[in-house]
Design a protein around this nucleic acid. Structure first.
Lengths: 144, 144
DNA sequence: CTCTTATGTACTTTTTATTGTTACATAATA
DNA sequence: TATTATGTAACAATAAAAAGTACATAAGAG
């Protein structure tokens, strides 16, 4: 299965937007991510709705951050993307009403749910500013 | 994305095999899971390799449990299926060597890894016997 | 023995989710 | 008003997973 990397890409873009003074066009972002401008617009739409970014039309237009990195958590970005499916595995539909199947579903649902909660709680605890700080450290290390 | 439900299906089958005195044919299992016998054989192949089940050819043949439910954990079944991908989301390949991307990958890898470890640890802590016990409780409740 | 019923597996087809593309509308600026 | 952006619906292409086909092998029934 090819995994959904919109969260990774979106964070990548947001941090670059933070660095950049001018608005970034979908075109430019698409080139950076090696994808199509329309795909970029689609992905950013959810972030615009929540006012994490704004888009401007016409000359000199493009995408611009409207919040501080400290005030955006991973969870917020994840949710702005429509809370994409976390797990690649999921239950079979117990159409048959089989009790064995029901017991299996119950047991696994519990475990999966714990993992989901941990993941989302960690997402909520990390702001984009922290990732940006990691980036600054990397930059120092490699001396660029 | 349509999620992989082999783990669910396989547990379902193993518990039924435990109930059944005679070996279950791939045909019968396929009917139960609403799928093809060949799909069943493919899925069970990993379990056979690890001697959780055995298969017999010819008349009266089929699949049979060769271990006690207490002695099989969810983790073992998961691994017998080839340790399928857990998460539906994964990192973008940082072909460009961008440090921002590297920082994002690093931060998210850490979080995802914690969730993975929790999930697998829980899998290791649950035996099929426990799920079977849940099933017995459900059976009591519904009085079948 | 040989017929039937099973599994084993390589190969092929189908399905489906995602991604990418095109087309055209809208808006802002030079 | 020409150009450069975004916005979005509709459509096409792609690729990964699952399902199915065909045929080989093996075991037991008669």
């Amino acid at each position: 299965m090819k995994s959904d990397n919109r969260l990774w890409r979106t964070l990548h873009v947001l941090l670059h937007m933070h660095q950049s003074q001018e608005p970034m066009t979908s075109q430019a972002i698409g080139q950076m991510l090696n994808t199509n401008p329309v795909v970029v617009r689609r992905t950013m739409a959810g972030l615009r709705e929540r006012h994490y970014v704004q888009s401007e039309k016409g000359h000199g237009g493009g995408w611009r951050l409207t919040r501080k990195l400290e005030d955006i958590t991973l969870l917020e970005v994840y949710e702005a993307l429509g809370s994409p499916t976390l797990f690649a595995m999921g239950e079979a539909d117990d159409s048959q009403g089989c009790l064995v199947e029901a017991a299996v579903n119950q047991a696994l649902a519990e475990v999966m749910d714990q993992a989901r909660q941990l993941l989302l709680a960690r997402f909520a605890s990390i702001s984009l500013a922290e990732i940006d700080a990691d980036f600054e450290v990397l930059k120092e290390l490699r001396g660029c």
